[in-house]
């Protein structure tokens, strides 16, 4: 429903899209803005302490009991190889559903809800290491800056090997 102009102003853009538009939740990890499809989001909640499981990857922060569902929480910053997030009450966990798995992503803050016309999503430029760009499904320009659209499927289905360098590395 929202025209391309409206997508610059999400506050005024409401309602689900026409088949040509998609909505994304954008969030910040460090200084970068990322976005995921809103339809994958199940819930957004403030950071609460997790139950740490033994012998896990370092970006696996543990699990949360979300109304009876045990949800693993991942530190996206760490997943992107930028070190562990020192989580506070102002950090946000985005509960997403990926291929029927429910996982939580720890991000610094949720920025906005973007309504984007599909044609405005730019493909990821070719890079030398195709594996790295597998996480990325596109780039959305918003005003001067750009929001990186993440592919949650690739992010969580791909088993990260020890030898695999982090995405942003």
């Amino acid at each position: 429903m929202a025209d391309p102009q409206d997508q610059q102003n999400p506050e005024t853009t409401a309602g689900p899209s026409s088949p040509a538009t998609r909505q994304f939740i954008s969030f910040r990890v460090g200084d970068e803005e990322f976005a995921i499809d809103i339809m994958a989001v199940r819930e957004i909640k403030g950071w609460t302490a997790t139950t740490v499981l033994p012998n896990q990857q370092n970006y696996m922060l543990g699990v949360l009991n979300l109304r009876g569902t045990i949800v693993p929480i991942f530190d996206l910053r760490c997943r992107f190889g930028r070190g562990l997030t020192q989580a506070t009450a102002t950090h946000v966990v985005i509960i997403v559903s990926v291929d029927d798995r429910i996982v939580g992503l720890l991000v610094d803050a949720v920025s906005d809800i973007l309504t984007v016309n599909a044609v405005d999503i730019r493909p990821v430029p070719d890079m030398e290491q195709t594996v790295d760009s597998a996480f990325l499904s596109g780039i959305i320009p918003v005003g001067e800056s750009m929001v990186v659209l993440l592919s949650l499927e690739n992010l969580f289905n791909q088993t990260p090997s020890a030898g695999l360098p982090a995405i942003a590395a």
Binding site: G15, P16, E43, I44, V110, I113
Partner: peptide
């Protein structure tokens, strides 16, 4: 956060959530 969740719910509700999305915004 609540407003965001409301927006998410509204988006998932499709057209039915359109008004709610405005409120959430």
């Amino acid at each position: 956060l609540l407003a965001l969740n409301a927006a998410v719910e509204a988006a998932r509700a499709g057209d039915a959530g359109k008004g709610f999305a405005v409120v959430a915004s």
